[in-house]
């Protein structure tokens, strides 16, 4: 079965199927029930599954995220929805101090099969407390897995994969992707957690990216192609674990690297990727690696300012062109 649906519908379908197939799966978060989900992902699920399994919570991020951990420890397969990544900081203690550590500090006795989904990213003029891309922070933490589905197929597949995973998995859904449309093949074999995918083959430069920046990078690649520059575009899909193998294979082929990340530069995933390339494939490089990231400001409200802060297609094209000019 395949067809064109929205990213939002793909996530919803995955939740729905998982809940039908496994009584241990339930959804919990702010306004997931009666309201239908702040991004309407869970719309209709309350009617289908009832309030015992589609659980509206008070505004207690730490409380209900911790409750997700407790339920996971006690045999359930909870999906916790946090409205945005900015709000997840209120639950940072539970995610970093408990979910990520439980298995290790108990000497392997207690694993936490918890899935946490949240919206991330800017572009909706939501200002400095609703727009940031902090998935890179979470990727710092051993014990967590960090997924960033960009495509409709991945939005669907990754939720299923995350629910099968015995350890805590955080899924970051870019808020501007919920309305995007794409093909969904439910019979397709999902690409495993931790594997990047090459969306466009190219011989001249590797553009390494994830999330919504994938589409900006692909658009930039088409423009570059008209100028005779063939970019290889890699969707990381998972920020932890990172797929070093795919990254290094591409670097060894193109010898030039541009990283596109909606997170800030300082102490970021883009910095981590550069460091790994430096460690593992330095002599393959023909030019210094470059990055297109968000400008280091708390996100502004005004549209022209916010757009100026975000990675854009023209910035990616310019950065790639400059990289190609290097000898």
């Amino acid at each position: 079965m395949s067809g064109t649906i929205t990213y939002r519908e793909a996530v919803r379908a995955a939740i729905q199927e998982a809940m039908q197939n496994d009584e241990r799966v339930f959804l919990m978060g702010e306004d997931v029930g009666r309201y239908g989900g702040s991004y309407a992902v869970s719309k209709g699920l309350l009617e289908q599954f009832g309030g015992e399994r589609i659980i509206d919570t008070p505004l207690s991020e730490s409380g209900f995220t911790g409750a997700g951990i407790g339920a996971a420890l006690n045999g359930m397969r909870p999906i916790v929805e946090i409205m945005t990544v900015n709000f997840s900081l209120l639950a940072l203690d539970q995610i970093v101090n408990t979910a990520a550590t439980m298995r290790y500090m108990s000497g392997g006795q207690f694993n936490v099969p918890l899935v946490i989904r949240m919206a991330t990213g800017g572009g909706n003029q939501l200002g400095s407390q609703h727009s940031h891309s902090m998935e890179g922070w979470y990727a710092h933490v051993p014990g967590l897995k960090i997924l960033t589905p960009a495509t409709v197929q991945d939005a669907y597949d990754m939720l299923h994969l995350a629910l099968k995973d015995p350890d805590p998995v955080l899924i970051f859904e870019h808020a501007l992707l919920y309305n995007s449309k794409g093909e969904l093949d439910k019979q397709a074999v999902p690409i495993a957690i931790g594997k990047a995918s090459v969306h466009r083959q190219g011989k001249d430069i590797s553009i390494i990216t994830y999330g919504i920046s994938l589409f900006k990078s692909l658009e930039a690649a088409e423009i570059l192609s008209k100028e005779g520059i063939e970019a290889e575009v890699i969707d990381l899909r998972s920020l932890r674990p990172l797929d070093d193998e795919t990254i290094m294979a591409s670097v060894s082929k193109t010898h030039r690297v541009l990283i596109v990340d909606e997170g800030w530069k300082s102490g970021s995933v883009s910095a981590e990727i550069m460091a790994r390339i430096n460690e593992q494939a330095f002599y393959e490089l023909d030019a210094p690696m470059q990055r297109v990231c968000s400008i280091e400001v708390p996100f502004p409200y005004a549209r022209h300012l916010e757009q100026a802060a975000l990675p854009q297609v023209d910035k990616i094209v310019t950065a790639a062109q400059k990289l190609m000019e290097e000898l």
């Binding site: 409380g63 911790g66 409750a67 339920a71 996971a72 420890l73 006690n74 359930m76 909870p78 539970q94």
Partner: peptide, 11 residues
Amino acid sequence: LPLAVGMALAD
């Protein structure tokens, strides 16, 4: 405490 909430919820 939040863990206790989740454990009891599961039960």
